[in-house]
């Protein structure tokens, strides 16, 4: 007992603090992850669990990776996912940048309220935010009717519609992604822009730049870390999104998340599900590294200039 106490006082406390989370993450994160990687080169069998190595099959089966490049299902899923995620990211940027910039320009009391309003949807259920749009986009909703009326007012008779088909389209997926991920874009951008020294804007004006030129030459270049950090924060989860496309997306052009889940649960092809998962992860390595590199910079923007 005494030996234990003295061990704790000397270095045990430190080893416990490091060791316990280390062990936990190894067990519940690293090992499951490695299993997926290993599973991706296994062979599907009709046994339970439905996979095996060796036997009549090759020990390491790379067939799944080959299928990624040959079967239209996978190619289309990857293209759709990356496209939707990229378009959603661009829209988030287009809407989020002026909002983040606007937040830095309003008075302090307003700023706190508005920031709260940006964060507030985070605390309500993600699922319900998706659901809210299902209500708006549905065939007979007031929102859809309003848009339909506007459409019918503008276009010639031949193109009039009873309602605008919004649900179950890629458009719906992108719209809802923008809606749910916009705060992820605004917050890092705001953190970045808020740290910029307003005196630099004055200096540029003093040297003859008009407000737009000040934005282009001074604000924008300094906010690139924030743009990249926010962009990746939207792009990465959007590319692997499962809930949004399954609720409002087009079932005939599934995204990767859906493919992984279907391969696993419906087709019971664990190796193929794992292969797609690994491929998705590999695709996300680039964006993740970009994010990791710029996230730090965004939060310390301008700091290097301060004495």
């Amino acid at each position: 007992m005494k030996a234990l106490a003295s061990w704790f006082h000397r270095r045990g406390w430190r080893e416990l603090i490091i060791g316990i989370p280390y062990l936990w993450l190894t067990l519940f994160f690293l090992i499951p992850f490695l299993i997926v990687v290993a599973m991706s080169v296994a062979t599907r069998t009709p046994t339970a669990p439905p996979f095996g190595y060796g036997g009549e099959n090759p020990i390491l089966n790379f067939e799944g990776y080959g299928r990624l490049f040959t079967e239209t299902l996978y190619i289309r899923a990857f293209v759709t996912s990356l496209m939707n995620a990229a378009i959603a990211t661009l829209f988030c940027l287009a809407l989020g940048y002026p909002m983040a910039l606007g937040l830095t320009r309003v008075s302090k009391s307003w700023r706190n309220i508005l920031l709260m309003l940006v964060i507030l949807p985070f605390w309500t259920s993600f699922l319900l935010r998706v659901y809210a749009w299902m209500g708006l986009m549905g065939r007979n909703s007031w929102f859809n009717s309003m848009l339909t009326d506007a459409w019918n007012f503008v276009v010639p008779q031949a193109y009039t519609l009873n309602s605008i088909p919004m649900m179950n389209t890629n458009f719906a997926v992108i719209l809802v992604m923008v809606y749910t991920y916009l705060p992820f874009m605004i917050l890092p951008l705001y953190a970045n822009l808020e740290r910029l020294d307003p005196v630099l804007d004055e200096a540029a004006m003093d040297l003859g730049s008009r407000p737009f030129q000040v934005f282009r030459d001074v604000t924008l270049p300094q906010s690139i870390p924030g743009i990249i950090a926010g962009g990746m924060l939207v792009f990465i989860p959007a590319a692997g999104e499962l809930v949004i496309p399954s609720l409002v997306g087009n079932p005939s052009s599934p995204m990767i998340g859906r493919i992984i889940s279907d391969e696993f649960a419906q087709v019971r092809d664990w190796p193929m599900a794992s292969t797609v998962a690994v491929a998705l992860l590999i695709l996300m390595v680039g964006p993740t590294m970009l994010y990791a590199r710029y996230q730090q910079k965004a939060e310390s923007a301008g700091a290097e200039d301060k004495p």
Binding site: D197, L200, A203, M205, D206, L207, G208, D217
Partner: peptide, 20 residues
């Protein structure tokens, strides 16, 4: 006359050097 049109330039206390 807006600041950008004035024949007046300033050396700021913090120098306001563009860090980028």
């Amino acid at each position: 006359t807006a600041p950008w049109d004035r024949p007046v330039h300033m050396m700021f206390q913090s120098y306001a050097i563009f860090p980028h």
